[in-house]
Design a protein around this nucleic acid. Structure first.
Lengths: 205, 205
DNA sequence: CAAGGTTCGTGGAAGTTTTCACAATTGTAA
DNA sequence: TTACAATTGTGAAAACTTCCACGAACCTTG
């Protein structure tokens, strides 16, 4: 596989996000590692070092052409086409995610929503039909879906995960506060507000 | 301040979460660094080293008494009392957060909800009155609130943050996909689903 | 009670990440 | 054209994090 540190990969989307902001909200054409770093609280040396793993994108004396760097980062991160995403769980959080307008402009689109609650199946979220989890497997296989977001109760999350993995999903964003067991070739990213808050309370008072 | 690495602090809530799971769902009384590590995908040595920063909580040959370790971790993380939390933003995500049942049992409680949309102010979310952001400052000061969750549009997030900081908030969980500028003594934690997904797509195909 | 198996806590080695600091390149202005 | 200021890319140093491996402690069983 790739020998580029995962921690470096993790910063690229942050750079990309801020570069787009510079381009669209501040109408800038160029920037420097120093300016970008100052805006993000990251050292300029780190930004240069991170980018140097992938090529030479800047010019001495001038800095980086923003749109060019955006394009390069999108290529590196495999964002040159839109990724279709499966959402499992149509509770409050599922609704929020399905209705979130921030996915599409940044490379993702939730295209299917599943739930196991009979009272929800057949209903609609953000214009999408809520389907039974029984159809999860066939849909993923048929549509060759690689990414999923999980927002279901703790009790069923590992079973849902197993189904996703069996069906061919390779990347999961998990909103359920539980560690998932998956094969090595499947990416998992976690989002648990409580864990994040508990980390911060350590530093309070 | 503390000389314990932040990366260690970040793992403690994960340990705590899994320990509670072992206690409540599997009815176990003791565990070992090996067992805990296997369940979390973390090496046993790392768990032992992490805990050793704070004291000696285990026994050779036996391992850790789960309830004792839970209590100790809660003390370390300042979770011995419930933290009241302000929520700013009553959109889809705000609703999901306000209704989330996972805060209370783990040390937090959203007690106030604010929004700037006049059509929302006066309404209700999860039994809480939606108040105008104009009252944010006075509420935080009066109630001595230290923690906030932000789920507002990008365009206003820095202004809201400035108000929170001025009012005395010291820890912010930010769901808006933007880096926040805050003084050194204010903690910020970020949650941006797109950033997380973009990190994963690097490894796909 | 002794032997054998388990597990902790930890010093130091190994590995990883960040920072430093400088040659080289570019643009600007006199 | 030349001097000067800005900025990159990078090798090496410094800082940080993880892992190894072992003595000591503890439990169980015969």
């Amino acid at each position: 596989m790739s020998d580029i540190p995962d921690i470096v990969i993790g910063r690229l989307p942050i750079y990309l996000r801020e570069l787009k902001r510079l381009a669209h909200e501040e109408n800038k054409l160029t920037t420097s590692s120093h300016e970008l770093g100052k805006r993000l609280g990251i050292s300029s040396a780190q930004i240069r070092k991170d980018l140097s793993h992938f090529g030479e994108f800047g010019k001495q004396g001038t800095g980086y052409h923003i749109n060019y760097l955006i394009e390069k980062l999108q290529e590196i991160l495999n964002l040159t086409h839109e990724w279709p995403v499966v959402l499992v769980g149509a509770g409050y959080l599922g609704h929020a995610l399905a209705n979130y307008a921030g996915f599409q402009p940044r490379g993702f689109s939730i295209k299917w929503v599943f739930d196991s609650d009979p009272s929800k199946i057949g209903g609609t979220v953000a214009g999408l039909n809520i389907q039974s989890v029984n159809e999860l497997k066939s849909t993923i296989a048929r549509e060759n879906v690689k990414m999923a977001i999980i927002a279901v109760p703790v009790s069923v999350v590992q079973a849902i995960t197993d189904t996703l993995v069996e069906s061919g999903v390779k990347a999961i964003l998990n909103y359920v506060p539980v560690h998932l067991n998956v094969p090595e070739d499947v990416q998992v990213s976690y989002s648990d507000p409580v864990t994040q808050m508990q980390r911060m309370t350590f530093y309070l008072e």
